[in-house]
Design a binder for these strands. Sequence first.
DNA 1: CTGTTAGCGCCTTCAA
DNA 2: TTGAAGGCGCTAACAG
Lengths: 355, 355
Amino acid sequence: MQKKRAITIKDVAAEAGVSLQTVSRVINKGPNVTQGVQERVKAAIDKLGYVPSLAARRLGGSRSYLVLAFNDERPTLEGWQSRRGNDWVDQMLYGGMLKCAEHGYRMLFELVDSHSDQLEAQVQAALSALHPDGVILTPPHSDDTRITDLLHRNGLIFARLGSHREGEGFAVYMDDEAAARRATEHLLDLGHTRIAYVQGHPEYAMSPDRLRGFTSAIEARGLEVEPAYLQPGDFTYEAGVDALNVLARLDVPPTAVLASSDEMALGVLHAAGPLGLSVPGDLSVVSFDDTPTVRMSVPALTAIRQPIAAMTARAAELLIQGKARGEVANDHHLLPFDFVVRESTAPPRAGGARR
Amino acid sequence: MQKKRAITIKDVAAEAGVSLQTVSRVINKGPNVTQGVQERVKAAIDKLGYVPSLAARRLGGSRSYLVLAFNDERPTLEGWQSRRGNDWVDQMLYGGMLKCAEHGYRMLFELVDSHSDQLEAQVQAALSALHPDGVILTPPHSDDTRITDLLHRNGLIFARLGSHREGEGFAVYMDDEAAARRATEHLLDLGHTRIAYVQGHPEYAMSPDRLRGFTSAIEARGLEVEPAYLQPGDFTYEAGVDALNVLARLDVPPTAVLASSDEMALGVLHAAGPLGLSVPGDLSVVSFDDTPTVRMSVPALTAIRQPIAAMTARAAELLIQGKARGEVANDHHLLPFDFVVRESTAPPRAGGARR
DNA sequence: CTGTTAGCGCCTTCAA
DNA sequence: TTGAAGGCGCTAACAG
């Protein structure tokens, strides 16, 4: 089984009767190639089925045709291991792979542990090995200056998903404040006045934004935010369970809960039954994320849907274009979110929730 | 923002006071390096934070440190687009990425359309661009000779997930026949005698295996397979809906259904309500795959769980080891499946299902 | 407009 | 046990 020699640019050059460089120019859509020569070269490429080697292009030239995405290791592995899946990764692949493929790029994933003291070493190792043309950061890395500084020092362009903070890199995000406001308004419009909020992990930059959206929606109706209705959370199922257990035992329990993640919303949902609360009869529930499971839950959850695929596609595009043009415009890109009303929200029962 | 020059093997050599070649030997665990020199070099590597460039290694040497996985384009995109997620990809990432990382490898995904007449060109293009050290094939590609022949011609080693057919490449699979038998026996043990089977897509090699397992389990109890209980399917939700609509209208409808995919099982489940059938009261349902959603469905589904992560990890290991040792042992690797009993199965109601 | 000349960073082969 | 020379396939910078 002798490996048949791969065909290289040299073969194409010979076939077309031109120099290597001319072939290279055609491949890279370089200027200064006659129509005729160009077609001759293209014919040779097609005939031989030539595809340039990524490794060689990277070594010789200044581009690697690689986009590298860093995701947080722990939650990602946890999602896979528990077989709950991983909507972020799925949607990033969907948006990113396709966009990269359009431009002859590949997207690679790398997991790094945001809590490790080796974080920077991990990131640098991946950069050194791969030399990507651009990097996509996800929360909570998007706002981690250890990483952004490192990328900047390496002269890399990068996109920060889910972050709208100032700083290096493209910020590609949705309006978390507006999303939380929208969800809260939906509950207010249904007639709820006692609305609780189970917050996201404080490490994540969007958490205060969402809280602001929640608060502003309530205050805009002349109501006040009940401090006891603000429950801490860390995005996990258990946090949702715990939160509802606290909330339901208040003297005046809420009639609706907004949770900052699907997991927490499901925790709330599943904690409701044992507490004698029906959803949405006694309690309306709204979640953030709209991962696959919330459509299968009973009742299906009303949810904010993040545009993860679109953000990733935009990020990939910005990086590829930016690399090609050598520009460093660190602008902001705000993408619209969706709000999907399902069965978990309804008007409050007259007289409020029963304990 | 001048890109700081990357540190190369040259810097390490200078730092350690040895030649390039010696550093290369240390990196690659080559023979003939004194203990002392080795430690000196390692110290230099750590000090400088040196990580070899994948592209350069691939170009100079014979390895690319890349494993390439081909998935079928249409179902994969469909899963992402519908936001149902994609358990196969998730579990492949889980098993494959981690195993690859252990060995300094990366895993890349490529989508190719099994129904395209460009299939071979798509595959060849990816191979030419990436020059992977090994390839992982998933159903239905695992049994597609257009692809396996192409890989063989390219002198590549590869693993075929979910295939136990003879031929080139490592076959890494679970025993689909035994799994179907196990699921069927579970229903028989509960007392069911009228069991239907919604089959998988005939293009997939495991489909006849599963049918055999189903049939043999029934016949082993001295029962006969009712031809009308064998419904065609293609793994989709709609196929499950259609199948139950046919089955429920038979003169003697089944009391249990085994479906060859989660999607189809969910289709069956959701078609049951409108037909006045309760699950598991009137109808027991067992599914194949155990993707995340079937645990959130109501009732949660009893299911066969494929060891996708384990298969991918095994495949990656075989490829990496095989590449290192230059061997071409095309053996078989049978991995165990799980069977998870949940709420969708129960003894048949006395007197059988009501129409 | 096209061709020539150097490398990119590493591994392979050979010599010492 | 170590080092030096060559080249992998491509692109950048320069000639022509």
